[in-house]
Each structure stands twice: as structure tokens, then as C-alpha cells.
């Protein structure tokens, strides 16, 4: 386990060095993935609530599709967004291929089904419990959906974190639409892929240790906040 040991030493040395290039990569990773989470949350939660509370033809098929899309391969999403944003593609005019914006779009698409599907499940479970009470108080389906979004906020936080974890960990989509350009679109995962292909496995693993630590810290912070809030609100 010599190389594992070396990887942790590398990670520690990297963090200690405070290398500005590394800091930029870490910050870009966080910016891209958090932006994607924000967009996917804003779109995904209402979709999840609508499917959770609504009754319409094709609803069950839609749930199956949504659940299946949770397993979207990042490379496929990357390719799709690449073809859309390429100069030869329908949105080529925007000229945002190989920019962080393109990476945000790809990751948003990737994690939207995860957030929507997990939200749908949480909202639907809550709807079973709340339905009679809310209808009795005079709430329509739309206002009930918003009430449930708020009341299931602790479960929804888990959905959002799942989306963030997926976004922060994926490499296939950002590699294709970002191009892994040094100083412009290089993020943690593409840097890891690059160092792996250069054969510098300890450095790659060291970067991996930093990435995992970051995700861990964010999750721990979110979990503790959630627990404290849950203890207060029951």
C-alpha cells in the first residue's frame, strides 16, 4: 500500500502548498457543480412536486422514465450538449462550448433527473400523509405542492446533496464540453483524469483525496444543519 500512503502524502503536500493553480481548480469545481445543483434544484423540485401530487395520464410511465434517467451516463450527456453547443450545432451561435457555462449546462442536465426523482418520492410519501388534512383546510393541488415542498425540506436536502455528489464526481460530461483547458475549464475530476493519463498516479490519487474531502465537508455541514433544524421542527 505504498502508493496509497504516497497519495495521502501528496494530498497533504498539495493542500499545504496552497498552490494558486490548485486553488483555482478547486474553486472552479465548486462553482460549476454548485451552479448546476442550483439550476437543477430550481427546475427539479417543482417537477418532482408536480409529479408527486398530480394525477394525469402517463404519470406512471413518466416516473419510470425519470427513475431510469437517474442513471444517465455522463459521457452521453456530454456528447449531447457538445453537439448542441458546437458551432455546427443548433446553439452554436452562443459560442459557449469549452466554457464553464457549458459545463454547468451539462451537469444540470445530468443531475436534474436525480433531484426530480428523489423529490418526487419524498413529496408523494408526504402527500399520502397530508392529503386529507390539506384538502380539509381548503388547499388546492398547486398550493398543496408548495406546502409539501416546504414541509419535506429535510428529505429534499438529501435529494439536492445526491445531485451535488453526482455533479462533483462526474468527469465524462465536463471533459467533453469543457475540454479540460488549463486555467479555463480544468476542474478536479478532469485534472485527475489528466494526471492519470500522464501516469502520475500518486498525484491523481492525491487530487482525488482532496475532492473527496471537499465533498465530505460539504455533506457533513449540510447534514449537521439539517439535523439541528430537524430536532427543532420535528
Amino acid at each position: 500500500m505504498n502508493s496509497l500512503h504516497e497519495a495521502f502524502a501528496q494530498a497533504a503536500a498539495l493542500v499545504a502548498s496552497g498552490d494558486p493553480a490548485l486553488v483555482d481548480i478547486v474553486l472552479l469545481s465548486l462553482r460549476v457543480s454548485l451552479s448546476a445543483v442550483c439550476i437543477a434544484t430550481l427546475i427539479g423540485l417543482p417537477i418532482g412536486a408536480a409529479i408527486g401530487v398530480g394525477r394525469f395520464p402517463g404519470r406512471r410511465a413518466l416516473i419510470v422514465v425519470l427513475n431510469a434517467l437517474m442513471g444517465l451516463p455522463p459521457v452521453v450527456v456530454g456528447l449531447l450538449v457538445y453537439l448542441l453547443l458546437s458551432r455546427a450545432g443548433p446553439l452554436g451561435e452562443l459560442g459557449i462550448l469549452f466554457t464553464p457555462a457549458a459545463m454547468v449546462i451539462a451537469q444540470s442536465i445530468l443531475i436534474l433527473p436525480i433531484i426530480a426523482a428523489l423529490a418526487r418520492q419524498a413529496i408523494e410519501d408526504a402527500w399520502t400523509e397530508y392529503q386529507e388534512q390539506l384538502r380539509s383546510l381548503g388547499a388546492g393541488r398547486l398550493s398543496a405542492a408548495f406546502t409539501l415542498l416546504r414541509d419535506t425540506r429535510f428529505s429534499l436536502l438529501t435529494a439536492v446533496l445526491a445531485g451535488f455528489g453526482r455533479a462533483a464526481a462526474e468527469v465524462g460530461a465536463v471533459m467533453i464540453v469543457g475540454g479540460n483547458i488549463d486555467g479555463v475549464t480544468r476542474v478536479m475530476t478532469t485534472a485527475i483524469a489528466l494526471e492519470t493519463s500522464k501516469g502520475d498516479l500518486p498525484l491523481a490519487l492525491g487530487l482525488g483525496v482532496i475532492l473527496i474531502s471537499l465533498v465530505l465537508i460539504l455533506n457533513a455541514a449540510a447534514y449537521l444543519t439539517k439535523e439541528a433544524a430537524q430536532r427543532r421542527y420535528g
Partner: peptide
């Protein structure tokens, strides 16, 4: 007219 249930559901607030 209003109703009170055997097990009322309270909102998280």
C-alpha cells in the same frame, strides 16, 4: 365548515 381528524397532521412550522 371545518374538520378535526383523529390524527391531525401538523406542518413543520
Amino acid at each position: 365548515q371545518a374538520m378535526v381528524f383523529q390524527r391531525p397532521v401538523m406542518l413543520r412550522r
